[in-house]
Design a binder for these strands. Structure first.
Length: 519
RNA sequence: GGCGCCGUAGCCAAGUGGCUAAGGCAGCGGAUUGCAAAUCCGCCAUCGAGGGUUCGACUCCCCCCGGCGCCUCCA
């Protein structure tokens, strides 16, 4: 089944065909590094990291680029406020961004080019546009002339005259057309500046992405991603200036992810909107806003103090990437609960086989994945069906939500298999069935790995506990085992109940008692 | 004012012009267990309201109601 992707430009799903067969150039608009990242900044990276994993799995060689915008009005203002330099502020916030990506298991990015390191490339594009008469200098600024681009507005489906009907765009006498946008901006004294044929200045907002994406991925990108909010004006302008410069199609597939929502009344979180004023926000919205890191700027790191990164990543992928995500503590707690069953299964597998799920070899490419066994046919027939449903879902515009649904069904099928054959108690006597279990678990690892979840082991059952605590628990459970052997139920139950109050769960199994911290 | 999105069970969330509308969380009943935990089995929706197209729509069209985004250098 071919991969199909929804292209914002055509507003429909299209069969995915790359410029160079077998290769994918993918560009994602990265952050302006002027403040700590909030969770909304992680949405795009997580989604496109997942897309890269899946395309790689499907046999493509993918080059994935995310830019770092380290020169910008917001940076200049913020640096002045904090009494530091743009360079220092950018370096600090870039590191924060990288830290967060790492925590979120976004590790497939090949290159993070910096805007300030690509001024010559930008000037070259601007020069071409000026020479071609598609851009014009004006008092040290350079503007792109939107009337020279017949297709302007195609991506965001607007036309210039309609846009002018709204009162939002303020007329600027100096520009030829109100919708013209800056390619180059003259610098005021004290601001970062680079020499150019039009005088000292700095790049406009959109030109960096054209310069860096085309430098590293060629003049036609396969995939260009970003948040829906960037569709206009950023991507529209990027598209206009790039195609006007090269005369070639700039991007084959425009993919836009939905934005993080911060509660029903809060509007978008993380942006500068403040239509309602804080006083009008209800408590839930404020909480959500705080979570997502809007004004007041709770960072991603604060979020991770309360929720595992794996839970957050899973939560983000449980909804289709184009849909908005309602971020809430309740939602994350529910996501965490739904993951618990997988952890229990991994523990069960460990008991039965003596092997760690996390040590199973996860094929990064489908072509190199081990085939599923034929025996027992019922079990593996079902797994094949579920695996195919998973892959079909991913092929269909990276439908991670539907794919995740099949993971739960795979989990249930495996639990059934374990229970049906009594592998927990009698696994040792049935090596063939245990081998079958391992094959099934390997498939599960392969498929979950594509989403970037269950990649690394959680801290063990004694999470956060020292060796002393572990020994103490062993002692308690040993004594309790003697009580149970003597059928002293009141006392053994008391021990279990009191441990439960301490958030320690004891599971009495045929093979002995196991304990873990309650989630 | 312009462009656009969404409204599926208590909650989250896939999905299709026509077999039984995925899955998760919560809940209920059962198996298992000394009792629990974990696991398994079963139950739990007619798809915001109305109209239209069609042999047939939750899925297509129109309108209404409700929620939301962009048009403001926010990912």
């Amino acid at each position: 089944m071919p991969i199909r992707v929804y292209n914002t430009l055509s507003r429909q799903k299209e069969e995915f065909q790359t410029v160079v067969p077998g290769h994918v150039g993918m560009y994602l608009c990265g952050p302006t590094v002027y403040k700590p990242a909030h969770i909304g900044h992680m949405v795009g990276p997580v989604i496109f990291d997942t897309i890269k994993r899946y395309l790689t799995y499907s046999g493509f060689q993918v080059k994935f680029v995310i830019n770092i915008t380290d020169v910008d009005d917001k940076l200049i203002v913020r640096a002045q406020e904090r009494g530091t330099t743009v360079e220092k502020l950018a370096a600090e916030m870039t590191q924060d961004y990288f830290d967060n990506l790492k925590i979120m298991s976004v590790d497939s990015v090949d290159l993070f080019p910096y805007a300030t390191a690509h001024i010559p490339e930008m000037l070259a594009i601007i020069g071409k546009l000026v020479d071609a008469g598609q851009a014009y200098p004006l008092d040290g600024d350079v503007y792109f002339d939107v009337t020279k681009d017949a297709d302007y507005g195609a991506l965001s489906h607007r036309n210039i005259s309609e846009m002018l009907a709204g009162a939002r765009i303020e007329a600027n006498d100096r520009k030829r057309h109100p919708a013209d946008f800056a390619l180059w901006k003259r610098s005021k004294p004290g601001e970062p500046a680079w020499d150019s044929p039009w005088g000292a200045g700095r790049p406009g907002w959109h030109i960096e992405c054209s310069a860096m994406s085309m430098k590293y991925l060629g003049e036609t990108l396969d995939i260009h991603g970003g948040g829906l909010d960037l569709m206009f004006p950023h991507h529209e302008n990027e598209l206009a200036q790039s195609e006007s410069c090269t005369g070639k199609k700039f991007t084959r597939y425009w993919l836009h992810n939905g934005l993080m929502q911060g509660g029903k009344a809060a509007g978008k979180v993380g942006g500068g909107h403040d239509r309602h004023g804080d006083a009008l926000l209800d408590k839930e919205s404020q909480e959500a806003g705080k979570l997502a890191g809007s004004k007041g700027a709770a960072s991603v790191k604060e979020l991770f103090a309360r929720h595992r990164p794996e839970t957050v990543r899973f939560f983000l992928l449980a909804t289709h990437y184009r849909s908005p995500i309602e971020f809430s503590d309740e939602g994350l707690i529910e996501a965490a609960k739904s993951l618990e069953g997988f952890y229990r299964l991994f523990e069960s597998y460990q008991r039965v086989s003596g092997h760690s799920f996390y040590q199973l070899p996860a094929a990064a490419r489908r072509a190199t994945a081990p085939p599923l066994p034929d025996e027992p046919p019922g079990f593996f027939g079902e797994l094949r069906l579920l695996r195919d449903r998973y892959l079909d879902a991913m092929d269909d515009d990276f439908n991670t939500g539907a794919a995740i649904g099949t993971l739960f069904e795979i989990r249930r099928a495996i639990n059934n298999f374990i229970q049906e054959h009594n592998l927990e108690a009698a696994g040792a006597a049935q090596p063939r069935l245990v081998a079958g279990l391992t094959a099934a678990m390997t498939l599960l690892r392969e498929l979950t790995g594509l989403l970037g979840v269950f990649v690394n082991p959680l801290p063990g059952p004694a999470a956060g506990d020292d060796q002393f605590t572990g020994e103490l628990m062993n002692l308690v459970l040993e004594l309790r085992a003697e009580l149970r052997a003597a059928k002293n139920w009141p006392l053994s139950d008391k021990i279990r109940d009191r441990l439960a109050r301490l958030k320690v769960v004891v599971e009495d199994r045929p093979s002995g008692a196991a304990w873990r911290r309650d989630a």
